[in-house]
């Protein structure tokens, strides 16, 4: 007869350490590795191994079929010599204004406003704002390509109010000056709801007593914002900043769908350059190097943001 279960129950009831030394809760146990193993194996196979392969490939000139030739760091020094790569990074920096900076500013402003005013039907409002994020961005990008058509709703509306001369001759996505901002506005439309939702949630967490105290001290709306609201949203701000900056740096979908990097190279971005070199022009080593550099830049930027925000938290 197996006495096991009864013994264990009694031991637990007695709270004694009779059978084997029980560990303190929270201390690491070797069996933990077993639990992690399945997920880790998948992660290693589909993320780590390709990452190391990519690092390896980036030191070669490889067309994808025939044996590659070793070129050392040549694919990396391209970063300084190939103007299209630098142009790609310049474009994402510009996109960051639309994908990160503006959504945060607008989100903060609206969150501060809403925190002071009771708005009816806030839930409906939230759903509408969040909707763009729920629909795949490929689908919305296709729809916006029509929106930006030279005879689409924006152009037609401008002509209707007599501002037809603002419509660029080659269409919003075909004009060298408006193509990138046009993609940016698409990103702003999609991303700003996310910021606002997060900030609204954050604002709800701020105790009303802080606001009352500020008012008692004679703070006006603006002082209140900087003294109470903004510090209270620090964590949400950090999250939004990191996510939106990373999201901008590896933008691909909307460029592929809406402009194909064009007109010319006016909207090319690093992720799109990686795709073209990998699949279209057979420059696999260069594509790998571009990807690795992009990854390192994302690491660096994320680390910098987190450092800056955490230092602020301690203050």
């Amino acid at each position: 007869m197996d006495p096991g279960p009864q013994v264990a129950t009694r031991a637990a009831a007695l709270g004694s350490l009779r059978r084997r030394p029980e560990r303190l809760p929270g201390e690491a146990r070797r069996i933990g590795y077993l639990y992690v193993a399945p997920a880790f194996i998948l992660y290693a196979a589909f993320n780590l191994l390709p990452l190391f392969q990519g690092i390896n490939i980036s030191f070669y000139n490889w067309d994808g079929i025939t044996p590659g030739t070793w070129v050392g760091l040549d694919n990396y020094t391209e970063f300084f010599t190939d103007p299209t790569i630098l142009a790609g990074y310049t474009h994402v920096l510009i996109l960051m204004i639309f994908y990160a900076f503006l959504p945060i500013v607008i989100g903060l402003f609206l969150a501060a406003l809403i925190s002071r005013i009771r708005i009816r039907g806030l839930t409906v409002f939230r759903i509408l704002l969040f909707l763009p994020l729920v629909i795949t961005d490929v689908v919305t990008a296709v729809a916006w390509t029509w929106v930006y058509d030279i005879n689409g709703p924006i152009s037609t509306a401008l002509r209707a109010i007599g501002l037809g001369r603002l419509v660029p001759a080659q269409g919003w996505l075909g004009d060298f000056n408006t193509a990138l901002p046009a993609v940016g506005v698409f990103g702003l439309w999609g991303g700003f709801g996310f910021c606002l939702i997060l900030f609204l949630a954050g604002v709800m967490k701020i105790p009303a007593s802080l606001y009352e105290a500020a008012r008692v001290d004679g703070a006006n709306a603006i002082r209140e914002f900087f003294a109470v609201t903004l510090p209270g949203l620090r964590y949400e701000l950090q999250v939004v900043l990191v996510l939106s900056v990373i999201g901008t740096l590896d933008t691909f979908d909307e460029i592929y769908v809406m402009t194909g990097g064009g007109p010319g190279t006016a909207t090319s971005v690093p992720a799109y350059l990686v795709w073209r070199r990998l699949f279209q022009t057979g420059q696999v080593g260069s594509a790998a190097a571009l990807g690795i550099v992009l990854m390192l830049i994302i690491f660096a930027v994320t680390w910098a943001i987190n450092r800056a925000m955490e230092r602020g938290n301690e203050a």
Binding site: L49, F52, I55, T66, G68
Partner: peptide, 17 residues
Amino acid sequence: VVAVALVGAACTPGGSV
């Protein structure tokens, strides 16, 4: 893990022709 991955990955890409 890193060592195994590096050894596994460190070979000339592309099969022999």
